[in-house]
């Protein structure tokens, strides 16, 4: 069986990708909502998002709503393919065992 993608093969990053997957293509999730879904601290979440961004799996946009800064994270097409492949890898393991 092939090896899993090391970038996604980490619990917090897997949750980040899972949270972004159901959004329509190009749609972004605000950092605060992502934090609520993943259940990580801000610093930890930020570090993992950076790792995913460097791998080209997510895009990060920063802007202001009024005077309030807003960070939004979206999944790139490359990230979508990588996540689907990773989920396929997990399903293969379960299928092989069953």
């Amino acid at each position: 069986m092939e090896q899993p993608d090391p970038t996604i093969h980490q619990p917090v990053r897997l949750k980040i990708m899972a949270a972004l997957k159901p959004l329509p293509a190009g749609e972004a999730l605000e950092f605060v909502r992502l934090k609520a879904v993943v259940g990580a601290t801000e610093g930890n979440l930020g570090a993992h998002i950076t790792t995913l961004e460097q791998a080209g799996y997510v895009g990060v946009e920063k802007d202001f709503v009024g005077k309030r800064p807003r960070t939004r994270v979206s999944m790139t097409p490359q990230g979508r393919r990588a996540f689907d492949a990773y989920v396929g890898y997990l399903q293969d393991i379960i299928g092989a065992a069953g």
Partner: peptide, 27 residues
Amino acid sequence: MSLSSQEASASLQQVEEASRRSSQLYF
């Protein structure tokens, strides 16, 4: 780096839960 079927199953459950929660918040 390979996973057992239990670990893979637990990971898939986490994926489903995170996707469900995110989808709900988005809605």
